[in-house]
């Protein structure tokens, strides 16, 4: 009996197929930024997303410079966008550059001069996944009003749904590949066991885990959950 093998290049094929979903979603995000910029009468709109544990970077912008230039990471702990990201609160400024938290490196590198600034958190599920920003009102538009802030928050909610879509399509690639790997692995193990044992019986890993956890008390299970949680580095859970 020969054991089946996972075809080469399957992962790349999957990424390519699901990449189409991502590409369409990015186009919709781009449309959303253009529309938002027009409605809010600003020069530029952009989406910032985490680039590391402590910094944000440009995912998309109506200003191509901001995504093409090699701009420095925006520190989450020392920038307005970072504050909005952490606090999940929409903020607006008339003279952002004079705010204590303003991170001026982007202005310097991109030859920009930020004045009016409106930033809204992009929330997906229970987590903030990015920040939607609107920069510099067009001539004569004045400062941001309460209805501008509301609109920005609503647009950020739509961005959240779209970004959730992108994240899910990425997860789908991994889940599909894992599933296929497990299927092939299982078939291989079955083939090996069948060769070694005439009955061909083998145990399922999942049922082994369930069996192993069965005698544990609820308290012990909670301990395991907490341990996994802390291993995941989620000690910081307070939001402002």
């Amino acid at each position: 009996m020969t054991s089946p093998e996972l075809p080469d290049g399957l992962y790349d094929d999957l990424v390519k197929e699901f990449g189409a979903v991502k590409s369409v979603t990015r186009q919709v995000l781009s449309l959303l930024l253009d529309t938002g910029a027009k409605c809010l009468r600003v020069e530029d709109a952009a989406i910032l997303v985490p680039r590391s544990n402590d910094s944000l970077g440009f995912l998309q912008s109506t200003n191509p410079k901001l995504t093409q230039l090699d701009l420095p990471p925006i520190p989450i702990g020392a920038s307005i966008a970072g504050f909005v990201f952490v606090s999940a609160q929409t903020m607006s400024f008339d003279q952002a550059a004079s705010a204590a938290e303003f991170f001026d490196e982007i202005d310097k590198k991109a030859g920009y001069s930020t004045k009016e600034y409106l930033a809204a958190p992009i929330v997906s599920g229970d987590a903030t996944v990015g920040v939607l920003t609107f920069v510099n009102r067009v001539e004569g538009a004045g400062h941001f009003t309460k209805s501008d802030i509301d609109l920005a928050s609503r647009l950020a909610a739509v961005c959240g749904t779209l970004m959730d879509h992108i994240a899910r399509s990425r997860q789908l690639v991994d889940v599909t590949l894992d599933h296929l790997k497990a299927t092939f692995e299982s078939a291989r193990v079955a083939a090996g066991l069948a060769a070694a044992s005439p009955s061909g019986q083998h145990r399922n890993i999942k049922s082994d885990i369930v069996e192993a956890l069965e005698p544990l008390e609820a308290r012990e299970l909670e301990l395991i959950r907490n341990l996994i949680h802390s291993l995941n580095g989620n000690d910081s859970d307070l939001v402002l």
Binding site: I76, F83, D235, S236, D237, L238, L240
Partner: peptide, 14 residues
């Protein structure tokens, strides 16, 4: 102060 300079704080601290 239950949230520090890096904007991090935990429920245990709260």
């Amino acid at each position: 102060k239950v949230i520090g300079a890096n904007s991090k704080g935990s429920s245990a601290g709260l």
